[in-house]
Design a protein around this nucleic acid. Structure first.
Lengths: 147, 147
DNA sequence: ATTACTTGTAAAATCAAAAGTTACAGATAT
DNA sequence: ATATCTGTAACTTTTGATTTTACAAGTAAT
């Protein structure tokens, strides 16, 4: 299948909303930065709204973060966009009558869970503020190199 | 797209080969445990062979592990089957002329890398032997409960 | 209150990575 | 010789995701 870029794009949207909070933030403008369609942006924003990360008003192009960027972590965004998606996928259709097929799902699944948790813990230690600040530093570095 | 079960199925194959090493291990027999087709098994085994995890001989149903199950980790299998696949996927098509679109890939990518590494470190601490032993314990527990 | 612009969704179309299938050349072993 | 396998290539199917199309309904400014 196609690879999901929802998580990445959702972080993008949140950073964009914060950085350009003084401008008219239409889904079209945001879509232009992500290089996708406005509908995709609105759909992702629906999810972010349902998860309490942003507030929007129908008819007006004024989305706002519901919390300070210090209080939003990558984990919040991950959970909002990917829900309970398995990070490492088990083959859930193995032969239950075989010693291996009948037990591997539980066994591997538990190690998968450990690994996933290690990754998500990292995400819980990175805030949207961290992302934004790093983006701004990278941008300045880029501008500096040009001169 | 479909979700890849190559990693899971490859671990399955390795555990199966070790546990049933005294039997005739045709791709058909293994496929029966995974509930897939023999061709899929042979394809996965090709990859495992290229990565030096198993040795096979064309025409004979006698695959063997190339190393002791103590020396094969989940990370070895992961790297063999998923190669450099991104665990968390970046949207690689964002607007370079926007401050956010032009920098988010590098910034997010680095946090993604940290999280991926945390997960892979966990995998590097789990051996095929651990998997096999846990499968056998689970099996005994299952049989015990039946009585 | 009309006009232009928006959001929020639903529904259908398209895409692409992966599994599944078919076919077959070539190796092995009895 | 015969039966059974492996190893691959080529093609088809599946399916989760994006993309597109369409439209009802809210907002704001003239």
């Amino acid at each position: 299948m196609r690879v999901s870029t929802r998580f990445s794009d959702s972080v993008h949207i949140l950073a964009f909303i914060e950085i350009y909070q003084d401008q008219r933030l239409s889904s079209e403008l945001i879509a232009n930065s992500i290089e996708t369609s406005p509908v995709v942006v609105r759909r992702l924003m629906s999810t972010l709204r349902e998860s309490g990360l942003i507030a929007t008003k129908k008819g007006t192009a004024e989305p706002k973060l519901s919390k300070s960027p210090h209080e939003i972590t990558l984990l919040d965004v991950y959970l909002a966009t990917e829900r309970a998606k398995q990070l490492f996928t088990l083959d859930t259709n193995t032969n239950p009558d075989c010693i291996v097929g009948g037990n591997i799902q539980k066994v591997l699944g538990s190690y998968y869970e450990d690994a996933k948790m290690a990754a998500l813990r990292k995400f819980n230690n990175v805030s949207l503020q961290d992302i934004i600040e790093t983006i701004l530093v990278e941008q300045k570095a880029k501008e500096h190199n040009v001169q």
